[in-house]
Design a protein around this nucleic acid. Structure first.
Lengths: 222, 222
DNA sequence: GATTAAAAAATTATCTATAATTTTAAAAGG
DNA sequence: CCTTTTAAAATTATAGATAATTTTTTAATC
């Protein structure tokens, strides 16, 4: 088994912290204390601080000089912002990816859609959904664009896990199928157009806060 | 004058290095040696390493574990990629900014256009051009989107300075004026459409390499 | 009892020092 | 003379220590 990756301690810490923030294990506005994290990972704070800079760049943490780092908070406005950015960038990526899509890739994407439909919880659905998008977009081969889209997907997942802490109901993803159908027939613009609307669909879910109040939470569900 | 900003040594170093990379003072693929940089700034390598992580996130540097950091190289493909990303994101920003644009802002943008037309060298033109774009886009108030656009502008500037090391010729920016005219008349979609084509316009310039060979360089000139 | 002031504790930002790795230079062999 | 091997220098990555700042706690005052 691959025990040691060729990566640094800092990148490992940033990956684990990013994951925790996305999954909501660390709450928005919670402080990220470098010494505590360093101790947990059996490292010094130097790599921890480097990890912080990366989380900052990904929009997952906010750093204030001399006052430390805290988990970035978010609101409906930012959910909308991420949705629109995803719509713009993913449709761009799809237009370039289209010509490189093979039947095998489209089949894999269809399989991912089926897995998403069958998913029993949010986490499984998110994984399958992200895989679908990655599959049809990656062939564009635009490194920078794909990196930006990945960061936006991380933000999306965070919104989603925050809104649907529990109670996921299965549903058939008609958009994904319509996108695949259009791509199979070479109707690229139509596929991009469906994708654009698809990722802008914002779902609502009731959320019980610790204080017992029930408020409404929003998230991108595409 | 403001002697000390409320920011950290790491952010100061990252800003200075970013500037140098953008201006082409440090060549693509050149190694960034942490101890040397630390010494130059009278600091230790801890803040230097933090600065590296930020440059990495901005796409200005590439880090390979245990092998150090080097200035990111780029090619025509990436110039195109950045142009397309800018087209997608800037038109999105403009659509949202439009409703918040005031006559004062549009006048300031027109002034920036005039300054760009009158610019004697690339650097002055780039500064004015970036100001124009910032002015008409910032009112969208979408923090994340604007941050992404800023990073893309940095990349654009780098391409530009690399291509036009010398020999800038003045030209009247008809696109900027057409965009302003459309915005003044409330024709937002038309303005966004012109902007979209505008930033995808890729200019060509002959460049003499150190070895004496003359090749063609490409850059976004919008 | 709430508010302000002072002291203590915790935390950040940075530097100096050390081990591990990579790059460069030199030497040996074909 | 070119290739491979070995040794030296440079460089990265990390740890441990220290000064400065912020936060928390405790005490004092209104």
């Amino acid at each position: 088994m691959a025990k040691e990756r060729d990566d640094t301690i800092a990148s490992r810490i940033s990956r684990v912290l990013a994951d925790r923030i996305i999954r909501g294990e660390i709450a928005p506005d919670a402080r990220l204390r470098q010494d505590h994290i360093a101790e947990e990972f059996g490292a010094s704070h130097v790599p921890v601080r480097e990890a912080f800079r990366r989380l900052e760049a990904q929009g997952l943490a906010i750093s204030e000089p001399r006052r430390g780092v805290r988990v970035a908070s978010f609101d409906l406005k930012e959910v909308r912002e991420v949705a629109e950015m995803r719509a713009a960038l993913e449709s761009l990526a799809l237009k370039h990816a289209a010509q490189h899509l093979t039947p095998a890739i489209l089949d894999a994407a269809e399989e991912a859609t089926r897995e998403g439909d069958a998913a029993a919880d949010v986490r499984a659905w998110e994984e399958a959904n992200r895989r679908f998008h990655r599959l049809i977009l990656a062939p564009c081969g635009m490194v920078r664009l794909l990196a930006s889209i990945d960061d936006l997907h991380a933000a999306s997942a965070r919104f989603l896990f925050s809104a649907w802490q529990s109670g996921w109901e299965k549903r058939t993803d008609h958009d994904h199928r319509a996108i695949l159908a259009a791509l199979r027939q070479g109707r690229v613009d139509e596929a991009a157009s469906i994708l654009q609307k698809h990722v802008q669909w914002i779902g609502r879910a009731p959320v019980r806060t610790p204080s017992g109040v029930t408020r409404e939470a929003f998230a991108i569900v595409g």
